[in-house]
Design a protein around this nucleic acid. Structure first.
Lengths: 185, 185
DNA sequence: GGCGATACGGAGCGCGTGTTCCGGTTGTCA
DNA sequence: TGACAACCGGAACACGCGCTCCGTATCGCC
């Protein structure tokens, strides 16, 4: 991958850039020919560099997911586990809602179609953050990491259905807090 | 539609039954040929009775959505608007999560592809129920009917991602209650 | 039972999309 | 600069799916 011809390396970069843009806009649904055209290359060139559309998609998304996991790990030792947790939760959802590639990646990573490793890293880091927030009493104890992932996917669905509804995210965030309240309903 | 030949009426019923079963299982994604095969008829016969796959889908789903709207209207005059609202909310989600046809119908009804009338009926009845619960102080006031629909869609996404997680629905339900609590996070 | 109208079945069309193939081109190295 | 390998473009293929078409079978009425 380093001893490529100069034009090959150039084209590979163009394909990656085009894929990043196209996937971010329309998710996995974007036709591969569109990516090729956007990159200014032929479809065959895309397949020279990536064995399948799925592989290209993962190459584009992998970095971002790892970045999420990295962030989560960095926050795992912070004080105020509660505040840190909610900030992170909201940030992930906000970022993902601006990028359909990430949405699709998170939604499908349960289908085990996701590249093993990055998905698990993210899952583990998220679970860690959650556990700390729960131990600090900032998050209700009756959910686990997988539940949280499911909630993220759900929030992304909401966001796609009603874009820009900030208060809907707040509903979920409030629901995640422990129930120390007067029952009013 | 009443002066059909006997076999035509029979086949129409078989198609509807097959479509109900197939759509319930796999949603709109099910190929029309599968429905035809399941019904024991040819694809042409399906198209004799329904102008398009979409029309068949709506014929299958319309009744259920109207039923939802009907229920909501019946509950609109009940005492305890709060309890009634939450019961209804949970029931709709539970029913829909057992039937992908309903999931897809609710998710796409925002796209205005849904048969005008039934979707609006449901929307209106839901908004009414919500408004009463809010007036009774049982539901936070900062959401409206469209927000609620979005939340339902989101809950269905969660349910599909993590099937049978009863407590995840509880997170959303708790989040819908007014925020009269000690801030713990 | 015979006859016209109606309905049936499923092969086939059009289209979109992932993937492959190959003749031509271009970079690289001696 | 020449020659070989690597690489490129895009036409073509495979396939699934919505939908149509038409020869054939069936129904209903006299």
């Amino acid at each position: 991958m380093e001893k490529m011809r100069a034009d090959a390396r150039r084209n590979r970069a163009k394909v990656l850039a085009a894929a990043e843009e196209a996937f971010a806009l329309d998710g996995l649904a974007v036709p591969l020919d569109d990516i090729a055209r956007l990159a200014g290359v032929g479809a065959g060139t895309v397949y020279r560099h990536f064995p399948s559309k799925e592989a290209l998609f993962q190459a584009v998304v992998l970095e971002r997911i790892q970045q999420f996991a990295e962030e989560a790990r960095a926050l795992a030792t912070a004080d105020e586990p509660g505040g840190v947790f909610f900030d992170y939760f909201v940030r992930v959802i906000r970022q993902a809602s601006l990028n359909r590639a990430i949405c699709d990646a998170l939604a499908e990573s349960s289908g085990h179609a996701f590249k093993a490793g990055a998905g698990d890293e993210f899952r583990a880091a998220l679970a860690e953050l959650l556990a700390r927030a729960q131990a600090a009493g900032a998050v209700r104890p009756d959910i686990d990491g997988d539940d949280l992932r499911a909630l993220i996917v759900g929030c992304l669905a909401v966001e796609r259905y009603a874009p820009g509804s900030e208060h809907l995210l707040r509903v979920v965030v409030d629901g995640l807090r422990p129930v120390e309240r007067v029952r009013t309903g």
